[in-house]
């Protein structure tokens, strides 16, 4: 198998050019899909027989919640690759994941709280799912804080990579908290291996919104990784020619 394309990804000029080229192809489809899914979620899908119109919040809450664990897993894997193979671009990718991770996690907690008020009668309960998600927010903030507190980029990469790898233990806790413990939070409604508990008319906009969030995250990574590459390649000739 020809691995040239993979090795090329480790080249900052190649990765920078690729990210710049990819960004609009991810961003604009994400916006279009988001607009369609939001319209469907707000105006088209039928009212839920138990939750009434309040369930429409799931179209922004569930995809954001799914993104929080996907982003953290990607960040931890990239951090491990950077730490083991000393690949600078893997660290750059991990660093670029942090801000989208914070925003999606905060969004998950806030929209979940707003949904919880009419459904549970409280904005916040110390439920295992909510608490482990809050811990994830602190992990993202800790990762960003640790990076910001160390001036030397290589040391910041190593220290933050260790934190990201240790924090991965929270991901299965978030996923299985509703199964392992008595949780107020509802169980998983979507599964790769079982029939969904949600009706088809309601699930299609949800899946489209998930895809839209994923593409949007990809676009954000493109900008984030470009910022990281520029920061790390300040003294390189190719960047001087580009700048």
């Amino acid at each position: 198998m020809n691995w040239v394309w993979f090795h090329k990804l480790a080249s900052p000029p190649f990765a920078y050019a690729l990210a710049r080229r990819l960004r609009p192809w991810l961003f604009w489809p994400a916006i279009a899909l988001m607009a369609w899914a939001a319209y469907q979620g707000l105006f088209v899908v039928p009212v839920d027989y138990q939750q009434g119109d309040a369930y429409r919040i799931i179209y922004v809450h569930v995809p954001a919640a799914a993104m929080t664990t996907v982003i953290y897993s990607a960040m931890a894997i990239a951090a491990a690759i950077g730490l083991i193979w000393r690949m600078k671009l893997a660290h750059a990718f991990a660093a670029a994941c942090a801000l989208p991770g914070v925003v999606f996690t905060a969004l998950t907690l806030v929209t979940g709280s707003i949904w919880g008020r009419p459904m549970w009668g409280a904005y916040w309960v110390w439920d295992p799912r909510l608490t482990s998600e809050l811990l994830l927010l602190f992990l993202y903030l800790g990762y960003m804080g640790l990076r910001a507190s160390i001036d030397d980029i290589a040391r910041a990469d190593r220290a933050s990579a260790v934190l990201a790898i240790l924090g991965i233990v929270d991901i299965p806790i978030i996923k299985y908290s509703v199964i392992w413990w008595n949780s107020l939070h509802q169980g998983p409604s979507l599964s790769l291996f079982h029939k969904s508990a949600i009706d088809v008319s309601m699930i299609v906009p949800l899946l489209v919104m998930m895809l839209a969030y994923f593409l949007f995250f990809g676009a954000m990574i493109c900008d984030g990784i470009c910022a990281e590459i520029v920061k790390r390649e300040r003294n390189s000739r190719w960047l001087a020619e580009l700048a």
Binding site: L42, V47, D53, A54, R56, I57, V60, L99, I114
Partner: peptide
């Protein structure tokens, strides 16, 4: 939206603001 309009619209509004913030910040 029944009696849930305030909750639903505030969630969609906050999501829009958060995504705009993220896009602008990066």
């Amino acid at each position: 939206m029944g009696r849930y309009g305030g909750y639903v619209w505030s969630c969609y509004g906050l999501t829009l603001l958060a995504l705009i913030f993220l896009a602008v910040a990066v």
